[in-house]
Design a protein around this nucleic acid. Sequence first.
DNA 1: GTAATTATTGACCGAAGGGTTAGCGGCGAC
DNA 2: GTCGCCGCTAACCCTTCGGTCAATAATTAC
Lengths: 219, 219
Amino acid sequence: MSALSARAGSVEVRGGSQDSRDEILKAAMHLFASRGFHETSMSEVAREARVSKALIFWHFKTKEELFVAVLNRLLEPYFIDFSEEAGVLDERAQLRKLVEFYLLFVRDNASSVRFFIAQMLHDQHFAEGLNEQVLKLYSGYRNMLIELISRAQEKNLCSRQFTPAAAAGFLLSALNGILIEHLFVQNHPLDPESATAMVSGWLFGEDLKPADREGKAFA
Amino acid sequence: MSALSARAGSVEVRGGSQDSRDEILKAAMHLFASRGFHETSMSEVAREARVSKALIFWHFKTKEELFVAVLNRLLEPYFIDFSEEAGVLDERAQLRKLVEFYLLFVRDNASSVRFFIAQMLHDQHFAEGLNEQVLKLYSGYRNMLIELISRAQEKNLCSRQFTPAAAAGFLLSALNGILIEHLFVQNHPLDPESATAMVSGWLFGEDLKPADREGKAFA
DNA sequence: GTAATTATTGACCGAAGGGTTAGCGGCGAC
DNA sequence: GTCGCCGCTAACCCTTCGGTCAATAATTAC
């Protein structure tokens, strides 16, 4: 915020402490996210931020505090509000939009997603604070799905084979499965269109276009 | 193997070098799997194995070599052969069996599965050697699914809506999604029966029993 | 019995890690 | 001007880490 506005002058005229703090955070984000907590030393962060190690400890009491700050910063893009887009679309289109949004987000933030998953699986210590926030995001998304599916079922727009909660859960599992396949198998382009077609084919019982029957996203 | 048989006497009469090597491996397995590579020190391993640190370096040249040995040891349970069970069952039952097997395995080896996933996501260095083996397992499983689905489609036992490869891919994604949900949401019991019912409901277009419509595995 | 080989150890080493401290330049307040 | 605070640094401290080494038990070989 003020960190950026203060940098009006084109070159390295940084003055305020916010500026160095930001530089440190950026360097730490990069290093922590790509190497992990224990494999990143404060000296490395200092070097990458072109700042003395002591300054980092002036901004952040401990390495862990810096790490938590990085976690929160990396988490920001995950808090998105797309309620306004909903207005005109019917439930089926909204669901499709929601699924596509998930897949696009994962594709465009793969490295950050990978980092968070690895972090939560690996380190229960930090995970505790993290779990709360991630779970909030996750259940928010799930609730939107449930709500939409429920309304779609009322209007007979989709199969009533499952309860909305079960359908949403299964859908989420499929999405998560696509996610991890994408993270593991490199060169797996995660084609959101094909995957969305596949998933909504299941959900709405639609007949698929011949191209989608091959499920590029899963082959 | 001989490690155990040599310990016939009730108390600590271990002799051969294999015995101490095994003790070290067991300690290292435990520590690496629960804390990770970088967070585990050789001194800790030595203490847990009740052995001097120097002895570890006598058995294993470096920490990394020990870690690789641990990886291979932890990977052993994953190589299972269940071709003989197939014999009498029809394709539909075989598929159900295969799905259930996946889920049971994940449930019963959750900590090891968690460790491998975290490891592969986190550390590309070791992941390279690991990826090969894991990918072999994975594509082996996938090929069995494809083969079975293909035969099931020929016999009209299941929907022909998708190509076998696409159906297998989607199925695997669903399974992986269940897997990660199970790893993240603690107290999520991963009910294999319910999940299998759900999944085969999708695959075979079967009507579900009322209890399964609620999809306990996903709620 | 003794020589060689195999297991095992305590003590040690240099490097790197997280964190501290004393101090320095600059700048606003008075 | 000078006092005091803020931003910042070089040098230092202590601990831990991966790894080595010389010495010593314990086995085996002959």
